[in-house]
Design a protein around this nucleic acid. Structure first.
Lengths: 359, 359
DNA sequence: GCTAAATTTGTAAGCGCTTACACTCTTCTT
DNA sequence: AAGAAGAGTGTAAGCGCTTACAAATTTAGC
């Protein structure tokens, strides 16, 4: 704790103003309202079996005193922590930054603290987090998962951990999920390329090289494959790259493609940032889109318009906010065992100049 | 809490495997080690006056049991929460996303939970957070401030709140801070423009229109002004725009400049994202850099290389990690009232093709 | 070798809240 | 009109930890 000069100097002065206001406890509220602690506790949490008059008296006293329950005490006594965790593969990628901010806003507005957990694309961190769900459930009431690749065992463990769960971009999970139809989005993107006469296609998949694949990435890859298959085209394995979903990954994959494989006629990038990286790599070789290759991504990143990148736009903040709301709802109605729902948001093709008809 | 089908179905089965492992408490550790709770508590927190043999026995028992202290109980009893807050003006901007991730890593590695608080560039949220420091200090042990514009009263309140504090990009605050020399960076950037023969300069300042200015933004503006003054140039008020530090803000400011003011010979943008926005706006008018105007930013954003944007590079993740480490240290040595230090990291001019000699 | 001082350990009282349970009133039954 | 059922409230026992303070042990002093 900070105790340097400022507070030191003050020490000699009126100690009254330094003294931290003693905590307003539930006792104070009980005393002021003339009711028992127990009733106050129930009134504050809007539990049933509290008369309206009591409800009012308590609310009154509480605001008058500026009472705020101690989350620590509440938690310890078996209540809730008043905080939720957002778990993301990384916090820096555009998608996650957007989704995190949107979700955080929802949580904050519901009076919940947001604990941020970035897996940093590191298996070790992943294991640490999901290997000890007890530790997690001790500090938060619920978890918002953003595009996390979970094993069946992990899903199972989470579902029975007592934690409320909601997710973005996940699949067949026993909790609420919101996302886009990734396979369809990829299928549409690929068909856009196909429709422009390109048939020699490469894909920069969102899979992290050497890691468990997130549903998002495999779905998009499947959509790509299906589109090709429907046109009786085969996928050249040389043109399937695992690029992850970072600019750097896209750049690396594209460089590899150019140097050690071959140039396709068009490229479907798993996300816009990957596409940015690919564009960078192209430029380094004196190439560009759509001159030497057409390229399309998914996201509609803020910079995509500027770079003229064609893309399948998806609502990112909406997904984060939506899922956050579902989580909050789940938290507020613990008993309600509604069947987990999967909400699918729309995507939209945005044609820009990075894709054009094959000459 | 999630209680849908999965757990429902299980209900009939062996209830043993559904039963959550009962919490390992300090009692269990005490029992196993043959010592009292009190001694265990002290040993665990490495307080003085614990014999080595006890220390060992406790550590042994704790690991054997996989004991982790309940943060709620600990907090309630007057201990620490084991979590810290990161407060940022927004979580989506590149700078903050980078810094947050770097800091989160440091905190996680120190066993601390990270509570993310985004002010969303909203005065209301700002007030809510800094107006009730008690609520904050109840849930976290320390706070990491990222470029927050604080009033004197808020600084004072924070310093005497009992919270450990560290910050990035702040000024003359009574706690550890790390940042770059913003005035110098701006001065260098401006001199780069001046050195290329440009004397009719505009600035897209990082100040949010209509809000308290963060130190970072005003410092950069001052550096710009000083550079001009040193060359006996006056600043045309028409060419000073408050653009905030977003792409959108840069675009808006640049559009305003083109439409309602006049084109300068060169532009100093408060940060790279602002510059991106400016480049977008330019393109919308059929203009471009460096053809119609030279432009330089500050940051060295991941995309800047690609866009050929000249800039003053600053180490972003380093700043976040550094400040986080200072905070952790402050947390670990509560008593030590070292004088708050300000650490200044280097910046570097990176010339790219968005700036060129005036013709 | 015996007391004073220092060191290590244990006892027990909370921290502020939730909740099982007991208790008092009302309101319906039949 | 007597008893059952229910609504509203209170009592008290923790939750798992920290921390005065007391007790027990060791070390030092002369």
């Amino acid at each position: 704790m900070y105790r340097a000069q400022y507070s030191q100097e003050k020490k000699g002065l009126s100690p009254c103003c330094m003294a931290k206001a003693p905590r307003v406890t539930i006792q104070d509220v009980a005393a002021l309202s003339g009711l028992s602690i127990c009733t106050v506790s129930r009134a504050l949490r809007r539990l049933p079996n509290v008369s309206e008059s009591a409800q009012l008296k308590v609310a009154d006293a509480a605001t008058k005193l500026g009472y705020k329950a101690s989350s620590a005490a509440s938690r310890l006594a078996g209540g809730t922590t008043g905080s939720v965790a957002i778990i993301a593969p990384t916090a820096t990628a555009w998608f996650f930054a957007q989704a995190v901010e949107a979700a955080e806003e929802v949580f904050a507005d519901s009076g919940l603290d947001t604990v941020l957990i970035s897996l940093r694309n590191t298996p070790g961190v992943h294991r640490k987090v999901f290997g000890d769900l007890d530790a997690l459930s001790q500090r938060v009431d619920g978890v918002l998962l953003l595009n996390i690749a979970l094993s069946d065992a992990e899903v199972e463990a989470l579902a029975s951990s007592g934690l409320a769960v909601a997710s973005v971009g996940m699949h067949s999970v026993p909790w609420d999920n919101v996302g886009i139809d990734n396979e369809e989005a990829a299928w549409n993107a690929t068909n856009h390329l196909l429709g422009l006469g390109h048939w020699d296609l490469a894909v920069l998949s969102g899979r992290e090289p050497g890691e468990r694949s997130v549903a998002t990435a495999t779905d998009r890859l499947n959509g790509f494959r299906r589109a090709l298959a429907e046109h009786d085209l085969t996928v050249d394995p040389d043109l399937v790259m695992d690029a992850g979903s970072s600019i750097e990954g896209g750049r690396r994959a594209m460089t590899e493609l150019i140097e050690n494989r071959r140039m396709p006629s068009a490229i479907f990038a798993g996300c816009d940032e990957t596409a940015f990286g690919a564009l960078m790599a192209l430029r380094e070789f004196g190439l560009s889109a759509p001159k030497n290759v057409s390229i399309i991504g998914i996201d509609d990143h803020q910079m995509s318009w500027f770079l003229g990148l064609s893309t399948m736009a998806q609502p990112v903040a909406d997904q984060g906010a939506f899922a956050a709301n579902l989580l909050v709802e789940g938290l507020q109605h613990p008993g309600r065992p509604t069947a987990p729902a999967s909400h699918v948001l729309d995507t939209k093709l945005i044609e820009r100049k990075s894709t054009r008809r094959k000459r």
